[in-house]
Write a protein that binds this DNA or RNA. Structure first.
Lengths: 166, 166
DNA sequence: CACAGATGCTTCGAATCCGAAGCAACAAAC
DNA sequence: GTTTGTTGCTTCGGATTCGAAGCATCTGTG
């Protein structure tokens, strides 16, 4: 399996553990804030935020799922929930009858606006408070590079349906 | 709620998004590897790993839960699962009749050993591959500081039961 | 010792999540 | 225009998750 069973030094291990722990704790706290402020799960918030940032306030299901690192079936579930609450609408795309276009509603934008300040406050307190400007830039740079690398490298067997080879 | 509705600049936002995305993608891939190699979920692996690193191979439930950022009830569930598979044992603590001591078994260590090389390989490929030594150190330093800060600051209302004030 | 409060864990119910299988619409080849 | 393969989404079943409530044990006070 692993032809190079090298082990990690304490710094590598520490970086890995800190990454996992920080994201877990952060996610936990944010989730609570979102739940209280607008009865949203983290995923739901991510979806709304993404839609809100879109030029025309809409996306295809698949693009949304990819953007949030989420399973398609899970997305269907959340989209249904959000639709029932009137925060988004779903309609078949004009171009492609199969694909569903999800669009944020005014009500969705309202919820987003209501929740956002608290969200920022949590991040500020929890994540940015102990950091210098240079630290934030370092995170941006290093994690950005890692993300690009991950996006590029198809994991071992993660894609039962291959991305276009084109 | 938020007395300072300041907004974030692109670098801060980018750092935040990258953090979330990297940890999500990483977790996804690792989860797959663990499932294939040893039929373990990520949480189960974390628990086993933590137990395996313990001097005497055991921990109390609460300490385990805190260590992995996990709910107590969720931990009970996973501990049951692991116990059924013979990877850990559970027994009431001698000191404190209420608390349960979880200990890793030899079989648990075997599974851990079987899964570990692949785990390291995934991390190596996905996380460390695009990074210089200095980058890893930066992550270790910055994220370590954030983690300490988070650990210290009790979130808005996250601790219905206070930690020992001692 | 009896009592109240704190602490450790489990049970319970409901929500969320994922992968596999299924269905419908597209695209390419003939 | 039909056949074959691909792609987009949903449905389905099962696993995992959490918080609230419950039970048992410990601790401090008188």
């Amino acid at each position: 399996m692993a032809d190079t069973p090298r082990s990690f030094d304490p710094t590598e291990l520490g970086a890995y553990f800190a990454l996992i722990e920080v994201s877990s704790l952060l996610r936990h706290t944010v989730e609570q804030q979102l739940r209280e402020a607008g009865d949203l799960s983290y995923v739901q918030f991510q979806l709304l935020a993404r839609l809100g940032n879109s030029p025309d306030g809409s996306y295809r299901m698949t693009d949304l799922a990819d953007g949030v690192v989420y399973s398609r079936s899970g997305l269907t579930y959340q989209a249904q929930t959000l639709e029932q609450r009137g925060l988004v609408t779903r309609a078949p795309s004009p171009d492609d009858e199969r694909s569903t276009t999800v669009a944020i509603t005014q009500q969705g934008r309202d919820v987003l606006a209501k929740v956002f300040p608290g969200h920022i406050a949590v991040l500020d307190e929890l994540l940015f408070e102990p950091l210098e400007r240079a630290d934030v830039e370092a995170l941006f740079d290093v994690l950005g590079r890692v993300r690009d690398h991950m996006r590029a490298a198809p994991p071992r067997s993660a894609a039962p349906r291959r991305r276009k080879t084109s």
